[in-house]
Write a protein that binds this DNA or RNA. Structure first.
Lengths: 77, 77
DNA sequence: GTGTGACTTGGAGTCCGTG
DNA sequence: ACACGGACTCCAAGTCACA
């Protein structure tokens, strides 16, 4: 069963993954920096999760970018 | 007992309230446009709530701005 | 028109594992 | 190093009455 994903969350995940790759760090390392679970970060990057503002902020901080940068082009259908 | 609020969420709420005032609409009207409860929007504006990305996106759309606009200057401590 | 406390339910976020 | 699942805890979602 494929769960249908929210385009906005998929885009958010893509943004995060792209920036993470640029920083050259692993999901595990990002998760550790953000004080989040590695499986959770994985789910966010895949667009399977709908993080809170505070969690998103943790990820942004771990990636050393503004939250606004993370949600670029994240728009509703 | 005053609950201590997250500065990031307080800032988010301020941003929302400011943009809402600029549009000249009430919380009730904003809530209606965003398909959210009036008291929920009230809680977000006061920084008492930690909304998800999807909820924040609903509000952004109702205010006719990008999500990035809503989270401007929303930073962690 | 808005702030706020209280409440139920679903999902955010964790921890264990697998390939 | 990552995708994905199951089972869990706890908080966000969503609503109400009242000030």
């Amino acid at each position: 069963m494929m769960k249908d994903k929210e385009p906005a969350l998929v885009r958010l995940g893509e943004n995060i993954r792209l920036i993470r790759k640029e920083k050259g760090i692993s999901q595990e390392e990002l998760a550790h920096q953000a004080c989040l679970d590695r499986t959770y970060v994985s789910g966010v990057e895949r667009g399977d999760r709908n993080p809170t503002v505070l969690s998103s902020l943790k990820i942004a901080k771990a990636l050393d970018v503004d939250l606004a940068e993370l949600v670029k082009e994240v728009t509703s259908a």
